[in-house]
Design a protein around this nucleic acid. Sequence first.
DNA 1: ATGGTAGTGGGTTGAAGTGGGGAATTATTT
DNA 2: AAATAATTCCCCACTTCAACCCACTACCAT
Lengths: 144, 144
Amino acid sequence: MLIGEYRHTIDPKKRIAVPATFRRAVGRKVVITRGLDTCLFVYPVKQWEKMMEKLSRLSMGQADTRGFNRFMLAGAVESAVDSIGRILIPDFLKEFAGLKTKVVVAGVSDRIEIWDEERWREHVAKIEKQADVLAEKLGEIGVF
Amino acid sequence: MLIGEYRHTIDPKKRIAVPATFRRAVGRKVVITRGLDTCLFVYPVKQWEKMMEKLSRLSMGQADTRGFNRFMLAGAVESAVDSIGRILIPDFLKEFAGLKTKVVVAGVSDRIEIWDEERWREHVAKIEKQADVLAEKLGEIGVF
DNA sequence: ATGGTAGTGGGTTGAAGTGGGGAATTATTT
DNA sequence: AAATAATTCCCCACTTCAACCCACTACCAT
C-alpha cells in the first residue's frame, strides 16, 4: 500500500527520485501515464497489466471508451527505475502535468501520483474545504 | 481505549513523545494522517488497515472519491515509534495542522489526536459553548 | 531520600535526495 | 552515408536529513 506525500525536485535532466519508501513496492519497471486532474500516474508494471486487462474487456464500440483508451495508452510510457531509484519523465508528460522544478510525489494506494507543487497545493486546499462533507461520507461507511 | 489529554512539545527535530499510557495500546508502528478540524490523527497500524479496507470498497471513478482518496492516502504516513516512544512528524503534516512547539496529545477512543495548543484551546472553547446543544442531541439518541 | 519512569534535548552515523560527468545509443542534418 | 547533435543511461560526489543511541532533568512512588 503506497501512502504519503513527498516534496522532490526534477533535476536538469528531467529525473525524479522515487521516495525510498516506495521503491520496494514498485520494483524496477514502471509505467508513467497521463493521470486525472492534471497529474501523472505511475504504476508498477504488474498493476498496469491488471488495469489493461480490465480495460480490454470494455466494449470497443463506445466512443468515450475509445477516447479514454487513447488518453491512457497513447500517453503511457514504460520506464526503468535507475540504479539509485530515479525515473525519467518524458517531455510531453512533463508538459502535460505542468511540472516545473518542485513536484509532489504522492502515494495513492496502488499508484504514485506526480504533481506540480503549486497545483498540488491548490488541489489539496480545495479538498480541505470539502472536509466536512468528506467527514460525513466517512461516517456513513463507518470509518470514524 | 485511549483517553486523556497531554501537553507535550515538539522538539527541534520534529518529534513528539507518545504519552506513556498510550504506548502499549498503539504498538511500535502507527499511521499519521490529516485529521478533521485541522489536527492530526494517529492510528495504530491495525486500526488503519481496517479503515483502508472499508475505503477500498468505495467506487473509484468519481472525482470526489479521487480527491477523498488523496486526502486520506497521500496525507498519511507510516511511522515507527522510536525506542523511547516518540514519533516523527513530517513537515507537510506539521504544517497542515499548524503545529508550533506546544501541542496537545489527546486520546479519542481508538485514535490519538495531535493539536496545536492554541487551536485546541479555541476548539474546546467552541465546543463548550455548544455543549448544551450537543447534550440535547445526545439525549435524543439515548446516550444520557 | 532514592530508585524508577517519563519527557526533552543532542550527537553521530548512515541513508536518501540532488546534481553532474561521461559513454553509448538514437536522431538529425548536410 | 557520415558527421554532428541530442538524449538516455550508468556512475560518482556532495549535502541534507532521519534513525539510533545516549544523557539530562523532573516528577512520582515507595
